[in-house]
């Protein structure tokens, strides 16, 4: 994206901060440690550190990619400062050298005033658990990049920055998999929504759902981080709880978003893992 600035953090400083973060939260990347408002810059910076710690515990090295970019509309550049944020990125290389790349992403920020359990501590946790599971595969024919996006709630800024940088790099991308809100099943029917273009990627999800006895509803969503990839021509998938059949989480974007249905979420993670495993280890 225009003007993005990528910077790394020294390993020593990071280790110190991660230790401080772990002792402050009493956790080492457990799901509970992701629940809590992550709206202000300081809250998001703290969350980014927690995510790095969790990825480290999952066995992956990660980096913070800070960005400073123009606003989502040029007119705002006339009266507002640039937007800043941090994407957290971890690489899981293929077991043999490969040019194939899959991106797995979720946003970690919240709207102000919401603890963001369902939106999107659930997706954050899912991405990290997927990192752990996929890293245990003995053979992978695809490089997998895990990205925890900043500022989805402020116009999908983090994912736009990442997708633009990827496009500029010229590297091929097989598909992007966005997980946003995976922790609410009010009617207990166990259904998930899938927005994916017809083809091998959608087929992988449908097959994984069949194998697990999960009903998937095909849907279309024009918001969230996958859109940042689609508008640049990449294949992108959106997996979420059942948002479309009158089972919408009433706590959405509110202070009441404090609970995750863990059993349901784990089924969603298992579904995503099954589909992505089929794509990276056929």
């Amino acid at each position: 994206m225009r003007g993005s600035i990528v910077r790394g953090m020294g390993v020593g400083a990071l280790a110190t901060l991660l230790t401080m973060s772990a002792s402050a939260t009493g956790g080492t990347g457990s799901m509970d440690s992701f629940i809590g408002e992550r709206a202000t810059q300081s809250q998001r910076a703290h969350a980014a550190l927690q995510i790095e710690l969790a990825l480290m515990n999952a066995g992956l090295e990660s980096e913070q990619r800070a960005y400073r970019v123009p606003n989502i509309h040029w007119a705002l550049d006339l009266i507002m400062p640039p937007q800043t944020g941090i994407n957290v990125v971890a690489q899981l290389p293929a077991s043999t050298p490969s040019e194939r790349n899959i991106i797995i992403g979720a946003h970690y920020d919240t709207v102000p005033g919401s603890p963001g359990a369902d939106d999107n501590a659930s997706g954050t946790y899912a991405a990290i658990e997927l990192a752990e599971r996929l890293s245990e595969l003995p053979v992978r024919n695809t490089n997998i990049t895990f990205v925890l996006f900043d500022a989805e709630e402020d116009g999908a800024v983090g994912s736009n920055v990442f997708a633009a940088e990827w496009l500029a790099s010229g590297r091929p991308m097989h598909s992007m998999h966005n997980i946003d809100m995976l922790g609410y099943d009010g009617n207990g029917d166990g259904v998930f929504d899938l927005d994916a273009p017809n083809g091998p990627v959608a087929d992988a999800y449908l097959a994984a759902a069949d194998e697990r006895g999960i009903r998937l509803v095909r849907a279309n969503f024009s918001s969230s981080d996958h859109v940042s990839f689609r508008k640049r021509g990449f294949t992108a998938v959106f997996l979420s709880e059942n948002l479309t059949d009158g089972d919408f989480n009433k706590a959405y974007h509110s202070p009441k978003d404090t609970v995750i249905d863990r059993a349901y979420m784990e089924r969603g993670i298992d579904l995503a893992a099954g589909a992505i495993e089929a794509l990276v280890a056929p």
Binding site: R2, G3, P70, P82
Partner: peptide
């Protein structure tokens, strides 16, 4: 400031 990060509006 904005020209350096790619926006020419200002």
């Amino acid at each position: 400031d904005y020209a350096l990060i790619g926006s020419l509006a200002p």
